[in-house]
Design a protein around this nucleic acid. Structure first.
Length: 315
DNA sequence: GCGACAG
DNA sequence: ATCTTGTCGC
């Protein structure tokens, strides 16, 4: 059965015997992917009450939790120079490899991605983005007129998140909030822009693909930073954009808008061709980033700050 | 071969 | 993404 991140981490920590410690890297490998090491540390820092959290250390032996010294001392573990001796480190750990399961889910769903579109005119562009305040996610979905780029409608939803940010697993953190916001729109957009990569992903299944397949909606992935693939500046440009290849296949483009200082990355999410994804991304851009994502990003931060103010005002 | 890695 | 001081440019 599928375990949540929280439960899987809990079972990992419960498997560390008193008097021993484990590195973030080993916890991450046990969860199924070493690239989650930093996320494990962040999660423990932000959830200091997790049982066993005091037994997690960095590679150099420094405990992750600032208050770990007391719990370790009660188990006979002394800190020397703020570090736990390597002789205390566990070499292996048992636990549920949830990230392996999620990667398998990505690979399976990746086969459903359709990289062709129906060629129809697009009346509206959608955009989704999420801001965070601790475990609270503030998601916004917007729908814009594709010709004028004027905002037609917006929808905000706040939901609790229970999955950390882990590179290449972004969808599992953001999708629930994004879906909730999209469901509140009166009409679905003809094409949805997602803040994150599409097929430019190690499993060819970034957040934009995940959202597209789950929603059965045409999507385009837009990202500010590279994740997978390599730029090929020597290759012929497409509409002024530099191809990004993975294993010799062009999976995306890096495009710098006319007055912008840096490029953004475009790739297919679902139900669209790569060339058209680039063309629509360019058509939707007025300044430095596709307008639907700028609008969603702005509202998302306004909502978060508004809710935070209300919360502190009411005690 | 290994580490880094969207938001 | 968020945090956060200082710094730069319009």
């Amino acid at each position: 059965m599928a375990l949540s991140f929280r439960e899987a981490l809990g079972s990992c920590l419960a498997a560390i015997p008193p008097g021993r410690v484990t590195t973030c890297g080993l916890v991450a490998r046990t969860l199924g992917d070493v690239r989650a090491a930093r996320s494990v540390a962040t999660w423990i820092l932000e959830h200091p009450d997790i049982p066993g959290a005091h037994r997690v250390v960095r590679a150099d032996g420094r405990p992750v939790a600032p208050s770990a010294a007391g719990g370790l001392a009660r188990e006979g573990v002394r800190l020397r120079g703020g570090r736990v001796a390597e002789s205390r480190f566990l070499e292996s750990l048992s636990g549920a490899a949830v990230l392996e399961d999620l990667r398998e889910t990505q690979r399976r769903l990746a086969q459903r991605v359709e990289e062709v579109d129906d060629g129809k005119e697009l009346g509206t562009f959608g955009g989704v983005d999420v801001a965070y305040a601790g475990d609270r996610a503030f998601a916004v979905a917007v729908r814009l007129d594709a010709r004028t780029l004027e905002t037609i409608e917006t929808c905000e939803r706040a939901v609790d998140v229970d999955f950390p940010y882990i590179p290449t697993y972004l969808a599992f953190r953001e999708y629930p909030a994004v879906r909730a916001a999209l469901e509140g729109l009166r009409e679905r957009p003809d094409l949805l822009f997602v803040d994150g990569h599409g097929r430019l992903h190690p499993a060819l299944f970034g957040f934009a693909c995940y959202a597209g397949v789950q929603l059965d909606l045409p999507t385009v992935g837009i990202a500010k930073h590279p994740l997978a693939g390599k730029l090929v500046p020597s290759a012929p440009r497409m509409l002024g954009a530099i191809p990004v290849e993975m294993d010799g296949v062009v999976r995306g483009f890096a495009w710098t808008p006319p007055r912008a200082s840096r490029p953004f990355y475009v790739s297919v999410g679902h139900r669209i061709s790569l060339e058209r994804a680039l063309r629509e991304a360019q058509r939707s851009t007025r300044t430095r980033y596709p307008e639907p994502l700028l609008v969603a990003d702005r509202i998302t931060k306004e909502e978060r700050d508004k809710k935070n103010t209300e919360r502190s005002a009411s005690g």
